[in-house]
Design a protein around this nucleic acid. Structure first.
Lengths: 293, 293
DNA sequence: CATATTCGTGAGTTTTCCTGACAGGTTGAG
DNA sequence: CTCAACCTGTCAGGAAAACTCACGAATATG
């Protein structure tokens, strides 16, 4: 019996009352009524089978045992407070690691990174684009930015940022650009359709949205990553299909054109935050991203 | 917000789980289910906005922050445990102070003290008979043994030990002892009735119980304390009235006689323990006293 | 002497916490 | 591979703890 701890909440009430030499002030500090503190102290005294306070009419006074317990409890609590504060500070100071696919990183994020670091400096954002598959549950990332379709997993808090819109893009330097520019979507069936292994559904999805027969698609050159695919399109090697967000800068600069516009897909650009990491910084980042899109 | 303590019960659950590296074992140590521990740890993680454990299939592993918190918490708790144990040990080692009227002390307790100290040595009994009025609420006594009538005060835990029985006693050396020995109680009205200021009701009470007219009592010599009264009776100075318990030894030794027996009064010989002092030792003492009576 | 504080206590209610059962996932043996 | 053993997380519901509110007692204060 002597090996177990005293009731800790009672000890906290006692510590406050002992430090302030007043039940009422302790109650105020703990945001409860004095009755609650009184009862907690009583419970502690009964647990320890010790008298900690001498009640003298108005006010209370510590007994000898009370003084010793207060010293120990104040010290222990102060220490815990300190460690918790340190840990939380360390968590805030640590850079915020955002996982992100390479293509999104290069074609969308990097051009905006400077502004983000200026507008949210306390975030200390650090981008991480792993080699293999992106793992939003990895302990090495605080959040992950990606294109994905609902429903969302239960262990993730997902901030939806934008709908994904995909569409064919090609460079003005592409051989038949002039012909294609004003042509109907169906004309694309005859072109070299660049694609990636990571998004095999992109062209068929687009074809369906345009009312075309997806069976008649003839896929041309394939690329491992969307990033290479877009580089190839910019270089005029063919017609690529890509999310609008990733080519927005290229369209604005005239490096690419999207004559047939974009169509919505079921996917969203979303920020995934593991529910376990109840991190305020993720919310600030999501808000900034939403403003940026 | 960083100034307040983490939820302490959650911290206790975490500390156990971290020390044992197992939620289930922690649950066993704390005598709760693993679900409860899991919830507490979760609550702590949410409060601190920190990940303390990495769940890996079977078993859990501490994060870096978790290790630091465990070290701090284990240390703090161990310290508190130690101080509480010390305080309780000190309370046990301290002598048990029993308040007691002088007459009871001298005529009943002292002859039995040696045996009590042999049978309850860990009690380290210390008897205190104050000069003035006995105060069961004094912080200087752990319990008080006295004759008193119910009802009992609410702030006292009262162990009733025996009914008070009073009766006239006199020494065989008393002048008219031979005449009185077999006489009716009414004969006492003519004798020198020794009495004390502290128990003015004793003779009238006894007279009523005997069916005598209490108005016709003629009180003789008065004494300040019952103790002196009894000494006077033993010395053959007159007829005293006293509780049976206080004269039992004198009756057995033939120093006093009680030809008219004893009558019950509303009072009890009782051990009063302040409710605040939830002291096991008082209960042990009460039990011993009950056996002795 | 009335008044304002301060503490203790009891009844009733809110909140918390625990239990018990189930689901998901890993480990190791057959 | 399958299966059992084991560990953890989660949820609904109910027990237990804690709080609030109101009152009474005791003591300073004007």
């Amino acid at each position: 019996m002597s090996r177990d701890l005293p009731p800790l909440n009672a000890l906290r009430a006692f510590e406050a009352a002992a430090r302030l030499e007043s039940v009422s002030q302790a109650a105020e500090e703990l945001h409860v009524t004095h009755g609650a503190v009184s009862r907690q102290i009583r419970a502690l005294e009964e647990h320890l089978e010790l008298v900690l306070f001498v009640r003298e009419g108005r006010g209370v006074k510590l007994t000898e045992a009370g003084v010793r317990l207060r010293d120990a409890a104040s010290d222990a609590f102060e220490r815990l407070r300190g460690v918790c504060a340190e840990l939380r500070q360390a968590a805030v100071d640590r850079p915020f690691v955002l996982g992100c696919p390479g293509s999104l990183l290069v074609r969308w994020f990097i051009p905006r990174l400077d502004r983000l670091n200026r507008e949210l400096p306390e975030l200390r954002l650090q981008l991480s684009t792993s080699q293999g598959e992106l793992d939003p549950r990895s302990p090495n990332v605080d959040a992950t930015l990606l294109f994905a379709e609902p429903p969302w997993p239960a262990d993730m808090q997902v901030h939806e940022l934008a709908r994904e819109c995909i569409g064919p893009v090609l460079s003005p330097r592409y051989a038949r650009f002039a012909d294609l520019q004003a042509a109907a979507p169906a004309r694309l069936l005859d072109e070299a359709l660049l694609h990636t292994a990571s998004r095999p559904q992109a062209w068929p999805e687009w074809a369906r949205a345009q009312g075309l027969d997806e069976q008649s698609l003839r896929l041309g050159q394939g690329f491992e990553h969307l990033y290479y695919l877009l580089e190839a399109a910019v270089a005029g090697l063919g017609v690529a299909i890509a999310p609008q967000q990733l080519v927005a800068d290229d369209l604005a600069a005239g490096r690419l054109a999207a004559p047939w516009g974009f169509v919505e897909t079921p996917a969203r650009l979303a920020l995934w935050v593991p529910t376990r990491r109840n991190d305020r910084r993720a919310e600030r980042l999501a808000e900034w991203l939403r403003g940026e899109l």
